[in-house]
């Protein structure tokens, strides 16, 4: 829609109000990381300090979950990149029997609540006696990351003109050369964007993970435990900032990589 009229004042205020509602709460996380009060969530903070960053750095129980989260996110993203791109290549232009069913299958892990994905995997591990390991976490994460890569890649495949592929073949390139020298450079930024979104999603995921991790602790699970049984509250804030920034930067980059097209990344989660 386009309009030449000015928006009504109430609408403007309501829109700004909703936007503030979406953004102000996060800022408090940053403020509370500097508070001197470690037993309550007293506002305003009685004093400000930067000591919690050093305390968090020296807490030995934070590092292993951080490494595990990074490892899981990296492997899941790599798997999702391969599977999502393959799927997008097949689904972008072709019409075939069962196509709708396959696209439903791709979307399902993210359309159904996380608890169903988690509980399903948990049931399957129980039935097949698979012990919990890093592998069981990755299995879940890669499954719901496929759709993110797929969405980004399929949009780019659709926008690519078929004639560049034909031109490449006319010039004597075989399918693999065409993929390497023509398709991949064109897909690059969409895959990078999809990969970063998938990484952010996996790094932050907690609901499915609690069902597939057993006794292991990823960074979000560590945070969840601190939320339920707080110890040094400002340290949790420092970790929250780390998690926030680690997911925020890839999302922003993904946006700038794909903006300007009809396929801007992040439209659907």
């Amino acid at each position: 829609m386009h309009s030449d009229a000015r928006p009504p004042l109430t609408l403007t205020l309501a829109a700004i109000g909703a936007l503030l509602f979406l953004h102000l709460p996060i800022l408090l996380i940053f403020l509370y990381a500097f508070t001197t009060e470690e037993r309550t969530y007293q506002f305003p903070p009685p004093g400000l300090t930067t000591e919690w960053f050093a305390v968090a750095w020296n807490r030995a129980d934070i590092w292993p979950p951080l490494y595990l989260s990074l490892r899981v996110a990296a492997v899941s993203t790599a798997l999702a990149l391969i599977l999502g791109t393959l799927c997008a290549a097949a689904m972008a232009k072709a019409r075939f029997f069962g196509r709708d069913q396959i696209s439903l299958l791709i979307i399902l892990p993210i359309a159904l609540p996380g608890i169903i994905t988690g509980m399903s995997l948990r049931s399957a591990y129980a039935i097949m006696d698979i012990p919990f390991s890093t592998f069981t976490i990755i299995l879940g994460h890669a499954t719901f990351c496929i759709v993110i890569v797929f969405n980004n890649a399929v949009a780019r495949f659709r926008r690519l003109s078929g004639s560049i592929v034909e031109a490449s073949m006319d010039l004597g390139a075989n399918g693999f050369q065409t993929f390497r020298h023509v398709l991949l450079p064109n897909l690059g930024s969409a895959l990078l964007a999809g990969g970063m979104l998938a990484f952010a999603l996996s790094f932050d995921e907690v609901i499915v993970t609690t069902f597939t991790a057993g006794q292991q602790s990823t960074l979000p699970i560590w945070m969840l435990n601190e939320l339920v049984r707080p110890r040094q509250r400002p340290v949790t804030n420092v970790v929250a900032i780390v998690v926030f920034v680690t997911t925020f930067i890839p999302i922003l980059l993904a946006y700038y990589l794909t903006r300007g097209g009809s396929e801007t990344a992040g439209g659907g989660k």
């Binding site: 998690v243 439209g267 989660k269």
Partner: peptide
């Protein structure tokens, strides 16, 4: 979009 993608646990916290 940013609130949509930013960390779920951080938002709850």
């Amino acid at each position: 979009m940013l609130p949509l993608w930013s960390s779920y646990l951080v938002k709850v916290y």
